[in-house]
């Protein structure tokens, strides 16, 4: 894996040390009023952006924290966090 990821705790590290945690979809929805459809969408459906997306990573061989990064899915490079997200 050519990806290099900057962990907020440990700094820039080899991508092998991390586990992907999926796109950032926001907090768990409230259970009241959830339909099978909307729940399935939350759990399984992805936007599959061709471009920059916000996503979760877990530093499994490091500090053990979950954090988000922005990654360009077409170049597989981590990009700087957009101003709006800082």
């Amino acid at each position: 894996m050519a990806l290099t990821i900057t962990c907020p705790v440990c700094g820039k590290r080899n991508g092998y040390e991390f586990r992907y945690g999926g796109e950032d979809k926001g907090p768990r929805p409230d259970e009241a009023g959830l339909t099978p459809q909307s729940w399935c969408d939350y759990v399984h459906m992805n936007n599959c952006v061709a471009g920059v997306q916000k996503e979760w990573w877990f530093h499994k061989d490091g500090c053990g924290s979950w954090f988000t990064i922005h990654r360009n899915t077409t170049t597989n490079l981590q990009v700087a966090t957009p101003e709006a997200d800082r």
């Binding site: 586990r19 945690g21 926001g26 907090p27 768990r28 979760w56 877990f58 499994k60 053990g64 924290s65 979950w66």
Partner: peptide, 12 residues
């Protein structure tokens, strides 16, 4: 397990 528990509480 640690990863699992932290993943499901990551927004909280």
């Amino acid at each position: 397990t640690v990863e699992w528990v932290r993943y499901h509480t990551r927004y909280d």
